[in-house]
Design a protein around this nucleic acid. Structure first.
Lengths: 401, 401
DNA sequence: ATGATTATGTTGAAAATTTCAACAAAAAAA
DNA sequence: TTTTTTTGTTGAAATTTTCAACATAATCAT
């Protein structure tokens, strides 16, 4: 009798994985605390002094980090501060959206070195999209001599390993396009190419650079054409079936309510999706510009909220924003009740008016959550520009971390 | 200037953690595949033959596993099968519930060796509860000579490390009771005592022995006085703030609906909680016995569903069960939409009638989920007896695994 | 000034564990 | 009987962490 094939379980630990793990914590700690001395790194990470010394010299050897000065303690020999070498640690993040490709050049430990928006013409072919992505990568790469890797994000459902777009809402031309193959030249030029789903990439960005930085357990929400949510717990994204993310947009907020594109009734998207909001504006005789800005490059400095700078909003728009907040709150209810995240970080153009939307959302949340849970959760607007592109750029460093 | 205190990040890998990790995969694999040869263990785990040999002899030395025979291959030297030593690997799981303490004696690799139910009198003092737990542990421990550890689960919010009950719904006498201190003698008799929240313990049991065994990503739902849910992903329970679990019972299923004990309106618990169901029965002139059995010891064999054995249900009860399924479906909607679990494992006395409840729930789910997501999710009734006690018993082996 | 104290960073030896290759053992096949 | 195949053991090599000793550089006390 021949023996049946046995399924293999992965995950044996050896010296290699041990060292990788320790270097990863070294790097993460450096990223959070740079510039910092070896002694402090040892204390922060729990690694032995010898190991910290060893890792430091290896990384200095490779030119990734350097000594940047000394910090005198109250007494004793002053520490020698380590930091990432400026102009040395770049990665490129590219986010494909319905009407454009956002590209960022990202530099460790956390600088957005450059950004560019490349519009995609409506009805563009897949070939065109791929070329636009490559052009965006090339432009950004030209600004530096060495790129550690490239990350690309897609909307819709994606096979992350092979870089195949399975179904892309609003970008149906990409269906079943094999990006991995198409990007082989990119890989040879700029190092490994990693793929990620847009919302997951944005969540990763919030975790690395954004409001989820110091949080153990938060939710990242994207309000766009669709509405999605990704939970992040202990630096790890929740991982449903490959490519699927949390479809907050299709949580029912009003049983027997408005008809939604998905076929059901009362989905959040029918009230808070981009087209629902735009319909609300036109119903009031207003143009889309009252809420949505044209596809412009946001300023690289300053926060996402600029209170008092723009002209005051017409009362009808304020009403619409309050209603939007209310629906948002109702949609977030299950998330707070089921997961009690420290914070919910919300992204989307409407968050330009977070000062109106969020209080309204929070008020509604009091009606659909346990108070002890809501007390532990804060709602905040994202402060990141290009979160999806930044997230994929961070992903490109995954091999170090 | 004195330096500010720096927060310490945990998680340095060393030879110890490396070996623990590898022994853990060894044990888990053994648990899933026993009896199995060293060579197969090496293939299954990916561990080197030398390591497997080493671990095996160490564990045989300790008397935890043994060689139980040989398995001839098609050709070549026959393999020598390893298995857990019967009568040697026991742990005790104790689940404190509102009206009783369930205790199980659990034996690796997965046998329920004994079970006992100890009722708690209504209005019992904390001292009495603690004594009942100790007595339950003693009775079970008397059946074997060696116990690897004890696990205890509580309803409500629990400080897991110190074993302090912060707030226990329906067991308010336990509030702020320090179990860890009270159980010190237990610890010296039967090894380390670990604490867990009931719903989390049940989820752990489903993951180890139940329907979540082969699943990468499932939800464990408890329908009792309250209604809770715990997500399990890659063998890890979702971990909100200490002691909190998913309060499915307070997800809004009917805006402006029935008043709930939490102060809000339209919570699932107001429709599907035990008291809501009982109220529904009495409103129909039926006694609770029509649905709920008295606190009896369930049989240790056979599945939780026993179709056709009992007398047919009165149509009014069937209607009530169908309605219950509908509410359940609506409550599960967000879980499917947000997390797309492989399966949702549902526990609770009402699952005795899963054949009526689940189809109804699934039907309702089609109205509140994306079809592609629902297609990937199956609803199943738990087949475990004493899931919370079993889960805490498994927890007692956590130091090996 | 000068030695004592304190903290940083380096170095070499020891310890723990995995990996690798060689080999003995046991059974079927030629 | 020899060859082949698979299992399980063994010793040496390799890798990495850990531990303790030490050189270094600053402040503090006298």
């Amino acid at each position: 009798m021949t023996r049946p094939k046995l399924p293999v379980a992965a995950g044996v630990a050896n010296h290699g994985t041990m060292k990788s793990h320790n270097i990863a914590t070294f790097m993460q700690t450096l990223r959070h605390h740079a510039p910092v001395s070896r002694a402090d790194l040892s204390r922060l990470t729990g690694l032995d002094k010898k190991c910290v010394s060893l890792f430091s010299s290896e990384l200095i050897e490779k030119g990734l980090i350097e000594e940047v000065g000394t910090l005198a303690a109250a007494r004793g020999r002053p520490g020698c501060l380590l930091d990432f070498v400026p102009g040395r640690n770049f990665s490129i993040g590219l986010a494909i959206q319905a009407d454009r490709v956002n590209g960022v050049l990202f530099e460790l430990p956390g600088r957005l070195a450059a950004a560019a928006v490349h519009p995609i013409a409506a009805g563009a072919a897949r070939r065109e999209v791929a070329e636009t992505v490559k052009r965006a990568a090339g432009d950004l790469a030209a600004r530096t001599e060495r790129v550690a890797g490239v990350g690309v994000s897609f909307p819709g459902i994606v096979d992350l390993r092979d870089g195949v777009v399975l179904t892309a809402a609003n970008l149906s031309c990409l269906d079943n396009f094999r990006f991995r193959e198409s990007f082989q030249d990119l890989e040879s030029l700029y190092g490994p190419v990693r793929f990620e789903q847009s919302s997951r990439a944005a969540a990763l960005a919030e975790n690395w650079f954004g409001q989820g930085r110091s949080s153990d357990n938060f939710a990242s929400v994207e309000l766009n054409v669709g509405i999605s949510v990704v939970m992040v717990q202990r630096e790890e994204l929740h991982h449903g079936p490959e490519g699927f993310v949390g479809e907050l947009g299709h949580v029912i907020v009003q049983p027997l309510g408005r008809k939604c594109g998905c076929g059901n009734r009362g989905c959040l998207e029918a009230y808070l999706g981009e087209s629902a909001l735009k319909a609300g504006l036109t119903a009031m005789g207003l143009t889309e510009d009252a809420l949505f800005l044209p596809n412009s490059l946001p300023r690289l400095t300053g926060s996402a909220q600029d209170p008092g700078e723009a002209a005051p909003l017409p009362p009808a728009v304020v009403k619409l924003l309050r209603d939007a907040g209310q629906w948002l709150g109702r949609g977030l209810g299950p998330i707070v009740n089921l997961f009690t995240p420290d914070s919910v970080v919300i992204n989307g153009e409407i968050m330009r008016h977070a000062d109106i939307v969020l209080p309204s959302a929070r008020k509604e949340l009091t009606k659909c959550c346990l108070p002890e849970k809501l007390r532990r959760t804060t709602l905040v607007a994202s402060r990141l520009h290009y979160p999806d592109a930044m997230g994929t750029a961070a992903l490109a460093f995954a091999e170090w971390f």
